[in-house]
């Protein structure tokens, strides 16, 4: 196991976290907290896999996954933006609902093969760069490149365009944005839906590219929740989300890899001396998420950087927020 292989695998599986985190960043920048990421990831993973399996066309699967994620997100938008219900609970409900629906519709699909696969690509020229080439640009799934392109695109859209300015205004001070003629309700609905679309895409990336197939309730293994934590670590910045996604995914990968070989760097694998000790390796990614969220929160306090000011606060014209 070489470092390049490990990092390449981390980049690949980090794409799931990255796409989901980018979606959640867009949603949260509009002031809507959507904790239903895990649920949307589940339905996206299932829709992609099932449609891909039945049509044999991965692109149709991708479209289905995006639609499924968007549909759930629109439910959240209706409940929280229109009705002003509590966003935390609505998100939790979305996770329960999405997980349940995916379990029901995915009945009997587990262990049923890999279905349709998204293609992998090797980028000419770029793949010849030493180290970076094999890690980033060799034989990676097309979704890895989609993720890589979306990071600067998201950053540019949010920070450098007029619609992005409106998005930030709605998330920071909806009343002021409304006074300036920005349609707060519509903006929030659109970005909640867009977030759901990206999370759906992330789900399809699991079942059609990173770990192909349907593994029932093991399919997402909490990656939706990890993505929510990642957004806090990333302080709502796409670039830091990229960094965090790669970091966490690489550790996840490492925790798996360390359970395999008899020797690591020429030393006998300590985990083989006592097999149950590998369960401590399984904890690592989740502990790491707690650690990065703690670090992110500390830095946010120190530098007085925080969440979008209106995050989680319902808004109705003419009413004062909480």
């Amino acid at each position: 196991m070489s470092l390049e292989v490990l990092l390449a695998a981390g980049v690949a599986s980090g794409t799931v976290l990255l796409l989901a985190a980018l979606g959640e960043i867009l949603t949260e920048r509009s002031g809507i907290l959507n904790l239903g990421v895990e649920g949307m990831l589940f339905v996206g993973a299932l829709a992609g896999f099932k449609v891909g399996l039945e049509t044999g066309n991965p692109w149709l699967g991708l479209v289905a996954a995006v639609l499924a994620g968007t549909a759930l997100a629109l439910l959240h938008a209706f409940v929280t933006v229109r009705l002003g219900a509590d966003q935390t609970v609505s998100g939790l409900a979305l996770t329960l609902l999405g997980t349940g629906v995916a379990m029901v519709l995915g009945e009997g699909l587990a262990g049923g093969g890999t279905g349709a696969l998204l293609p992998t690509l090797t980028i000419p020229l770029l793949s010849a760069i030493p180290f970076l080439g094999p890690v980033l640009f060799t034989d990676q799934s097309i979704m890895v490149y989609v993720g890589l392109l979306l990071v600067p695109l998201c950053w540019w859209w949010v920070e450098r365009t007029r619609p992005g300015l409106h998005l930030r205004a709605v998330g920071e001070n909806p009343t002021a944005a409304d006074a300036l003629g920005v349609n707060v309700i519509r903006t929030r609905v659109i970005y909640t839906a867009l977030g759901g679309a990206l999370v759906g895409l992330a789900g399809a990336t699991i079942t059609m590219a990173i770990s192909p197939g349907w593994n029932a309730n093991q399919t997402t293994s909490g990656q939706g929740w990890i993505a929510v934590g990642l957004v806090i670590f990333a302080r709502w910045s796409p670039w830091r989300a990229l960094l965090g996604a790669w970091l966490i995914a690489t550790i996840r990968r490492l925790a798996l890899d360390l359970q395999g070989p008899d020797e690591i760097l020429g030393i006998p694998n300590v985990f083989h001396l006592y097999q149950p000790a590998t369960f401590f390796l399984d904890m690592l990614p989740y502990l790491l998420v707690i650690l990065v969220v703690v670090l992110g929160s500390r830095e946010a306090i120190r530098r007085r950087l925080g969440a979008p000011a209106a995050l989680g606060v319902p808004w109705h014209r003419g009413e004062r927020g909480l």
Partner: peptide, 14 residues
């Protein structure tokens, strides 16, 4: 299918 109780729980909460 086995997921029905979870699905009903989600629907109830919504």
């Amino acid at each position: 299918p086995a997921g029905i109780p979870a699905m009903i729980q989600g629907i109830v909460l919504v």
